[in-house]
Amino acid sequence: MEKQEKQSVAQPSPIETHAWGQMLANSLWVVTLLMVLAFFWQSFGEMLAK
């Protein structure tokens, strides 16, 4: 058991348990939010033009 744990500790982990997995998720959320805000900006311009 100890040997197994030692072996697995030496191996890297899959994406979901990595900090950069969380960073990827956060970035996707932020970029999507920015696009939604950009859409509102576009709509605001259209509203003023009407």
Binding site: E5, S8, T17, A19, Q22
Partner: peptide, 14 residues
């Protein structure tokens, strides 16, 4: 569960 536990150990506490 053993494998799951080990990968959690590897990644460090998120």
């Amino acid at each position: 569960p053993a494998a799951v536990k080990s990968t959690t150990v590897v990644s460090g506490p998120l």
